[in-house]
Design a protein around this nucleic acid. Structure first.
Length: 223
DNA sequence: AGCCAGGACTGAG
DNA sequence: CTCAGTCATGGC
């Protein structure tokens, strides 16, 4: 530790200076955050907002209402989020788990992070990123969220390999940063902002990237 | 008119 | 295990 974690904190400070606090996750309650985590899978957030608005308009944004709804109806409410049939099923699976826990924010508080993460991964439609998003942004646990932007940004700078696995990429962060939910919260949000505004897929605006001159960090090799 | 978006599951090899 | 195919709307 010590010197090894410095580069990642430097990256963080640069992003924070550029973009400021992101106030993530957009969502009024932990339950809404968890729902959003499923709805946003491979989907633009603006579409997720419409879907959540649809649920609210139908007064259906609660575990009971979602579990009671017919699949068709649930799918119709979340239609703007895309993949609505698929996501209706995934949502139901997650909400069934959520309701079964009582209030997960309270009931999971003392459970080991790794075990809880494994349990989430066992839910239909919950993969690594969705699980970590729920852990971090709904449950306040220090689970670093890795997404396409994270990989693209770090790989494009040559700091990690393009074919690094999710877990490998996550370890780069968790092994070099303090286990701090507030830090992970802001860090991921900042990476998404950089990804949406600057580190674009086809036409990256590398000239505007605040990380441009950081040089070689070799985050994997040193780990 | 494509391309892209805060992925995950499935079946084939 | 790796990997293409699948799922679908809306913005640019």
């Amino acid at each position: 530790m010590g010197a090894a974690q410095a580069p990642l904190l430097t990256v963080y400070r640069r992003l924070f200076r550029r973009f400021g606090p992101r106030h993530w996750w957009p969502g009024e309650t932990p339950f809404e955050v968890a729902v959003g985590a499923v709805l946003t899978q491979n989907t633009a957030w603006t579409n997720v907002e419409r879907a959540i608005a649809g649920l609210k308009r139908a007064r259906a944004l609660s575990p009971r209402r979602i579990l009671a709804a017919a699949p068709r109806r649930l799918a119709r409410w979340i239609r703007p989020a895309g993949y609505f049939n698929l996501k209706a099923r995934r949502l139901r699976a997650l909400v069934a788990w959520w309701a079964g826990q009582g209030n997960p924010v309270v009931t999971t508080r003392r459970r080991p992070l790794a075990a809880l993460r494994q349990e989430l991964l066992g839910i239909y439609g919950v993969g690594p990123e969705t699980a970590d998003s729920i852990l971090l942004y709904a449950l306040g646990r220090p689970a670093f969220v890795v997404d396409t932007y994270t990989k693209r940004i770090f790989a494009r700078h040559g700091w990690v390999s393009w074919d690094a696995s999710y877990e490998a990429l996550q370890r780069v962060f968790t092994r070099r940063l303090p286990q701090d939910a507030a830090l992970y919260n802001e860090y991921h949000a900042l990476l998404v902002e950089l990804g949406k505004t600057t580190c674009l897929k086809r036409r990256p605006k590398c000239g505007e990237c605040p990380l441009r001159d950081l040089g070689t960090l070799r985050l994997e090799a040193g780990a």
